[in-house]
Design a protein around this nucleic acid. Structure first.
Length: 429
RNA sequence: GGAUGGGUGGCCGAGUGGUUUAAGGCACCGGUCUUGAAAACCGGCGGGCUCGCGAGGGUCCCGUGAGUUCGAAUCUCACCCCAUCCGCCA
């Protein structure tokens, strides 16, 4: 959510930022917002004057009545009646304007940070060369993960279709355990090495929470809603970030770092035909999420740190990967800047997204009304929020299958996971 | 699902129609005192909008909205949320 004052004070920067995001009508939008804001404030001033006079007159009425001056009281009451009418109309218009302004603002994406590259789509994302790690394993005719999983008899899409339809899967035996092992491994790493606090959050949330982390109102069709108006979280970012909603935090407790391993649910509307085979794009998947709540001056450094934490998971699993800075055309609605981590999938012979780490600045904090009390200042400020996958567990499982596949179709278990897999070194038929 | 109670500032809490410009306390900040600290005492201490170069002023906000009234935290209605008890249940 944008600050209307910031738009008013620097309309050009706002327009420039949205234009970089390829919003065609940014200038017209800004003019519209500024005009509505101007009307609203002019109205508020008039309204306040009328209210002040009404209050004054009301006091005089009380006094006149006390002095038994009925003529005076009556004259004042007639005046107040007129003011009352004016005030009622003004208040209604004020509410309408405020609601409209809020609706428009709620649907405007965050502005890209200055160092985000320009570009139309993912083809223009820019690799962060210094973050590239490892090398693609040499392999003869590598298989895709679903072939491997199905041949092992441990990944069953057909039965899942029978029960739940497309984009669901049954994992069995060692693969089911592998997913659990990955989740434990990642949570242990983030809590023990990087200072994150493990959270087991609600995964059904209210509408306001979904608004706070900007899944709503714009992306309603991408999430599932229950008949009792709860939303199934599309990511643990929602409950972890909203943890501080409507709060005023002491600066001393920042940064807050939370991690959670949860199922995530996505309707994948508009993804018809994409990644229809295998576990890449599911209606339900598990993910270990990282969320940081920080002061504004620390959010950029935290973004780098969080990306380091996510990358460390891949390093310990020995998985080749690269990091790209998303360009202005590919960045998410609420993000100022995003790093995607892409893992190498030999079966697909390409990099695929396995984590996305975003700095949202104060964009979500405004929506949630999450503030802190700076030590050095009197006034309150909005916190900055960051979120990142650390990592998408389902896709990590895919990456392990494809990168650790053996010629005979078995899967070697990476060293780091063996303690979590009861010591087994290989998943075979 | 049934019944009841309740939503007041960072927190607790008083307040049932006009000296509430929201008492009081806690926390926090500054000061006095002290070798230092604590205690005590003094002062400060919410947010939105707006007017003003500034000092400062105005106005709105007691869950949300709609009413009653010259005037509403206070009365009425609707909605949202929270809590407790009973029933059912992992």
């Amino acid at each position: 959510m944008h600050d209307i004052r910031a738009i008013r004070d620097d309309r050009d920067a706002f327009v420039a930022g949205l234009t970089r995001r390829h919003m065609a009508n940014a200038a017209a939008l800004a003019d519209d917002l500024v005009a509505r804001d101007k009307e609203l404030r002019a109205l508020q001033t008039r309204l306040q004057e009328a209210q002040a006079r009404r209050n004054e007159a009301s006091k005089l009425i009380g006094r006149a009545k006390a002095q038994k001056d009925d003529n005076q009281a009556e004259a004042l009451m007639i005046e107040v009646a007129g003011l009352k009418d004016e005030i009622a109309k003004g208040e209604e218009r004020e509410r309408t304007l405020q609601a409209e302004l809020r609706d428009v603002l709620a649907n405007i994406p965050n502005l890209p940070a200055s160092d985000v590259p320009d570009g139309a789509d993912e083809a223009a994302n820019v690799e962060v060369i210094s973050r590239r790690w490892g090398a693609a394993p040499g392999m003869n005719a590598p298989k895709e993960h679903f072939e491997l999983g199905e041949q092992l008899g441990l990944m069953d899409f057909e039965r899942a279709t029978k029960v739940s339809g497309a984009r669901f899967v049954y994992l069995k035996g060692a693969l089911a355990r592998l997913e659990r092992a990955l989740c434990s491994f990642m949570l242990d790493l983030h809590t023990e090495q990087f200072g994150y606090t493990e959270i087991a959050p609600p995964i059904l949330v209210r509408e306001q929470a979904m608004f706070g982390t900007n899944q709503l109102p714009k992306f309603a069709e991408e999430s599932f809603r229950t008949t009792t108006d709860y939303w199934l979280i599309p990511t643990a970012e929602v409950p972890l970030t909203n943890y501080v909603r409507e709060e005023i935090l002491e600066e001393a407790i920042l940064p807050l770092r939370f991690t959670a391993g949860t199922p995530c649910f996505r309707a994948e509307a508009g993804a018809a035909g994409k990644d229809t085979r295998g576990m890449i794009r599911m209606h339900q998947f598990s993910k270990v999420e990282l969320v940081s709540i920080v002061t504004p001056e620390n959010s950029q450094a935290e973004h780098e740190r969080m990306t380091d934490c996510a990358q460390e998971v891949l390093k310990r699993l020995g998985l080749h990967h690269r990091v790209v800075t998303l360009c202005t055309g590919d960045i998410g609605f609420g993000a100022q800047k995003t790093y995607d981590i892409e893992v190498w999938l030999p079966g697909q012979n390409r990099f695929r997204e396995i984590s996305s780490c975003s700095n949202c600045g104060e964009f979500q904090a405004r929506r949630m009304n999450a503030r802190y009390r700076p030590k050095a200042e009197k006034s309150l400020r909005y916190v900055h929020t960051l979120n990142g996958s650390g990592l998408a567990t389902g896709r990590t499982l895919v990456a392990i299958l494809e990168n650790y596949q053996q010629a005979d179709g078995s899967i070697a278990v990476p060293d780091a996971l063996r303690p979590y897999m009861g010591g087994i070194e290989k998943i075979a038929k």
